[in-house]
Design a protein around this nucleic acid. Structure first.
Length: 504
RNA sequence: GGGUCGUUAGCUCAGCUGGUAGAGCAGCGGACUUUUAAUCCGUUGGUCGGCGGUUCGAACCCGCCACGGCCUACCA
């Protein structure tokens, strides 16, 4: 455990009358004994009962009298004197229970009347259907398993406050079915991606999260410190350089699904920690990576959602058809008529155009950086349907292999869906001397004030000097893909516990 | 980081031109043996995000601060 002495935690100061009443109820239960029991065993989930018996009609159930033993949180309660109904919710769904003086007993029923919404109950009894045809457990045994001290949000409107939904995800998950659905789908998407990768012959690995030299992306890192080693460490901004070391080592198809950390601004598309899948395949090229990326995304949609057509915030997204491919210069000319006849490698022209469209030009920007920024300013927002953007300048791609036809370019793509960057991949730079030179260029950019420029990683150069086979790699932003596939407007909607400021 | 909108009971929300705080749900008490957002009767509950200012008087006007939403910037 922690070496630091734990400070006394402040008591929550949001007590109120409802909580006080529930504490009083709990106190009385304690006196009677047996609170928070752990000897109840459930036999059925809500959805299993619905699947097995939901289709039977009232007389059939009355003849069969199936027994049921369930447990769940009470989310609705209707007391009617000598009998009551309540709705219990477990991880699989909801079911109604019926509590009565006749069957359950007056003493238990009277106790039940003082139990609260949010309490967790264990019930055993017999299944029947009400006059309205609702499958219901008629309780013969009824126990309070967990007393809830805090009241649930309003039963009809649920929890609407975004801030509370993010800070107290447990409450959001209890009352908002849509939120539960998003995270179930997220899990299915990740599972699908993992299965796709394994089926394609890739080996899943875990590489360090703490790096002494942060590399593999252009981003500002979080810093931390190892006490015993007395060394500065960085939370990783990408696993790329470690995964390629593994390809050097002979793991020819390798992938990792894990967290990256970037110390940058937050938005509806950025969380400081986010999940990325990176993959590398020896003896393949960027073309293979585009095809593979497309298969992964399409398969994830089909297996997790059952469809290759999704709607994202009102935009129909077609994932079933081949994804478009669009070189950067073509994209700029297509969406910015003023660029139609311009020389898109003319630094002065690009700088002027960038300023016109609201960009900021700095001294260390070459034509490649400027061209990319013009693309981002004029074209990116139009890329709603899945589109592989290609022909990236070498200047902005310090880890990518130069294109054979033009050494100023690299064999690289980014995948855009709904104008969001979803994936980034390229034929990997495996020339150790070119890589060393590009690291030196990055170091110069860092000296010139580019805080996101990369560090020189001497061990990575050493690894390349042992020989990285011709290799292609790509990374897929899992959170953003989940956003698209679950129609979630904010990355915070697809991360269980998104980063928040300290509570006010 | 910048802009903008918001913060009122446990929850969802009203609250007019500044006149001293409201509803529904939840809770508490009562009635009710097929309800289902149960219903009916009664009822408790508020530092109006915080601090300061203007005013005879502030939930409301002004300033600062905190937290959040959206847009924007950097990035994935």
């Amino acid at each position: 455990m922690s070496e630091e002495k734990a400070e006394a935690q402040p008591q929550p100061h949001d007590e109120n009358k409802i909580i006080a009443e529930r504490r009083e109820k709990l106190s009385k239960l304690r006196e009677a004994g047996g609170v928070f029991p752990n000897d109840f065993r459930r036999a059925h989930s809500m959805d299993a009962l619905a699947r097995e018996f939901g289709a039977l009609d009232k007389p059939a159930l009355e003849e069969k009298k199936p027994s049921a033993t369930i447990a769940g949180r009470m989310v609705l309660k209707r007391v009617m004197g000598k009998a009551s109904f309540a709705t219990l919710q477990d991880g699989s769904g909801k079911i109604q229970i019926y509590v009565s003086n006749d069957i359950t007993g007056a003493e238990t029923h009277d106790a039940f009347k003082h139990w609260d919404l949010g309490d967790i109950l264990g019930v055993s009894g017999t299944l029947f259907k009400t006059n309205k045809g609702e499958l219901t457990v008629q309780a013969s045994q009824l126990r309070l398993l967990t007393k809830a001290l805090r009241p649930l949000p309003e039963k009809f409107h649920g929890l609407a406050d975004q801030e509370v939904r993010y800070r107290q995800r447990y409450v959001d998950l209890i009352v908002n079915e849509g939120s539960r659905k998003v995270f179930v789908e997220r899990s299915k998407i990740v599972q699908s991606i993992r299965e796709s990768m394994v089926a394609e012959g890739f080996l899943e690995v875990e590489t360090p999260m703490m790096h002494s030299i942060p590399g593999g992306a252009a981003a500002r890192p979080f810093k931390t410190h190892h006490n015993a080693l007395d060394m500065e460490l960085f939370l990783r901004i990408a696993p790329e350089l470690y995964l390629k070391r593994l390809v050097v080592g002979g793991i020819e198809k390798v992938f990792e699904i894990n967290r990256n950390f970037r110390n940058e601004g937050m938005s509806t598309r950025h969380n400081p920690e986010f999940t990325m899948m990176e993959m590398y395949a020896a003896y393949e090229t960027v073309e293979y990576m585009m095809d593979l990326t497309e298969r992964i995304v399409r398969t994830a949609a089909r297996t997790a959602l059952g469809t290759e057509q999704v709607t994202y915030q009102g935009n129909a997204i077609e994932l079933g058809k081949p994804f478009a491919r669009l070189p950067i210069p073509e994209a700029i000319r297509k969406f910015d008529p003023q660029s139609a006849t311009a020389d898109l490698r003319d630094r002065a022209w690009l700088a002027a155009r960038l300023k016109q469209v609201g960009g900021a030009v700095e001294g260390h920007h070459g034509w490649g950086s400027l061209q990319l920024m013009v693309f981002e300013a004029v074209a990116e927002k139009h890329l709603i349907q899945p589109t592989f953007v290609t022909e990236y300048p070498a200047e902005v791609s310090p880890l990518a292999r130069r294109a054979d036809r033009d050494p100023e370019l690299v064999d690289r793509f980014e995948l855009f869906i709904d104008a969001k960057e979803m994936a980034n991949g390229f034929s990997e730079l495996n020339d150790p001397e070119d890589q060393a030179q590009r690291f030196l260029d990055q170091a110069q950019k860092k000296n010139a004030g580019d805080q996101e420029a990369m560090f020189y990683d001497a061990d990575y150069i050493r690894a390349l000097e042992y020989g990285l086979p011709p290799t292609a790699g790509a990374g897929i932003g899992i959170d953003r893909l989940v956003m698209i596939l679950t129609d979630s407007p904010s990355i915070r909607d697809v991360i269980l516990f998104p980063q928040m400021r300290a509570e006010a």
